[in-house]
Amino acid sequence: KKYKIKVYVKDKKTKKWKKIKEIEVDTKEEALEAIKKLPPNYEVKIVP
Rank of each mutant, 00 (worst) to 15 (best):
K6R: 09
E43S: 15
P40L: 09
A31N: 00
P40Q: 10
P39G: 11
L38I: 11
Y8K: 00
K4Y: 08
A34M: 15
K45T: 13
T14P: 01
I20Y: 06
K18N: 06
T27N: 10
L38E: 02
K18D: 03
K2E: 04
E24I: 13
K18Y: 11
W17T: 02
K19V: 11
K21L: 14
K2L: 11
P40F: 08
W17L: 07
T27G: 08
V47R: 06
Y8L: 03
V7G: 00
K19S: 03
E30C: 04
E43K: 15
K16R: 10
K4A: 05
V44D: 01
V44M: 05
K37E: 10
K36L: 09
V47A: 05
A31L: 13
K13T: 07
K1T: 12
K10D: 01
I23M: 11
N41R: 14
I20Q: 03
K19W: 07
V9E: 07
K2F: 08
L32N: 06
E30L: 09
I5M: 04
K28M: 14
E30N: 04
K15L: 07
E29S: 07
P40W: 06
K13L: 13
E30H: 05
K13R: 12
W17Q: 02
K36R: 14
W17E: 00
Y3T: 02
I20V: 14
I23V: 08
E24R: 06
K4F: 08
D26Q: 10
I20N: 01
E30I: 05
E29A: 10
T27C: 04
K2R: 13
P39W: 13
P40V: 08
K21C: 12
I23A: 02
K12M: 10
N41W: 13
P48W: 09
I5V: 12
Y42I: 07
I20S: 01
W17A: 02
A34K: 08
L38P: 03
K19N: 03
N41V: 10
K6F: 15
E22T: 09
K12L: 13
Y42E: 03
K45S: 06
Y3S: 01
I23D: 02
I46D: 01
V25G: 01
I46H: 02
K19C: 12
L32Q: 11
A31D: 00
A34G: 02
K2W: 06
V25A: 07
K19H: 04
K16C: 09
K36E: 07
P48C: 15
Y8D: 00
V7P: 00
E33F: 02
I20D: 01
V9P: 00
Y42R: 09
I35L: 10
W17V: 03
K1M: 13
E43T: 15
V47D: 05
V47N: 05
N41T: 10
K12Y: 09
W17M: 06
A34I: 15
K2Q: 07
K21W: 13
K4M: 13
K4T: 14
D26I: 05
W17K: 04
K15Y: 02
I5D: 00
E29K: 08
T14W: 04
D26H: 10
I20R: 03
T14M: 05
K12Q: 13
P39H: 07
T14Q: 05
I5F: 05
E30D: 08
K36G: 10
L38S: 02
V9W: 06
A34T: 13
Y8T: 00
V44G: 08
K16N: 05
K15R: 12
I46R: 02
D26V: 05
K16V: 05
T14C: 04
V7A: 03
L32S: 06
A34H: 12
E24M: 13
K10P: 04
Y8S: 01
I5H: 00
K4L: 15
P40N: 12
E33K: 08
L32H: 08
K19L: 15
E33T: 09
K36F: 04
V25F: 14
K1F: 12
T14N: 09
K1L: 12
P39E: 07
Y8G: 01
V9K: 15
K18L: 11
I5T: 00
D11R: 05
I23Q: 03
K28T: 07
V7N: 00
V47H: 08
D26E: 11
V9S: 06
I5N: 00
K2D: 03
V7D: 00
E24C: 13
I35V: 10
K13N: 08
T27R: 03
K28N: 07
V44H: 08
T14I: 03
E22D: 06
P40A: 11
V7S: 00
K18C: 06
E43Y: 15
E22Y: 03
D11S: 11
N41F: 14
K4C: 09
I23E: 02
V44E: 01
I23Y: 13
I35G: 02
I35M: 08
K45C: 14
Y8F: 07
K12T: 11
K45V: 15
K37Q: 12
K1H: 14
V7C: 09
P48N: 10
N41E: 14
K2N: 08
K37R: 13
V44R: 02
I35D: 00
D11P: 02
Y8H: 01
V7T: 01
I46M: 09
K37C: 07
I35H: 02
D11V: 07
V25W: 03
Y8M: 02
T27H: 03
K45E: 08
K2P: 06
K13I: 12
D26R: 06
Y42V: 13
T14D: 05
T27M: 02
K10W: 15
L32C: 13
W17N: 02
V9R: 14
K28H: 13
I46F: 07
I20L: 09
Y3D: 00
I35C: 06
E30T: 03
V47Q: 08
Y3C: 06
E22R: 00
D26S: 14
K12V: 11
P40G: 12
V47Y: 12
E29C: 11
E22Q: 05
K21Y: 15
E30W: 01
W17S: 02
E33H: 05
P48F: 12
Y42P: 02
K36N: 09
I35Q: 03
K2C: 07
E43V: 15
K36D: 07
K15H: 12
K36Q: 10
K13V: 13
K15W: 02
Y3R: 01
V7M: 06
V9F: 07
V47E: 12
P48R: 14
T27L: 03
E22W: 02
K2S: 11
L32A: 08
E33N: 11
L38M: 11
I20F: 06
K16M: 08
T14K: 09
P48M: 13
E33P: 01
V7Y: 05
K21G: 15
I46G: 03
V25Q: 01
L32M: 12
I46K: 01
A31S: 03
K37W: 05
A31P: 00
K6L: 15
E29F: 08
T27K: 02
K10G: 02
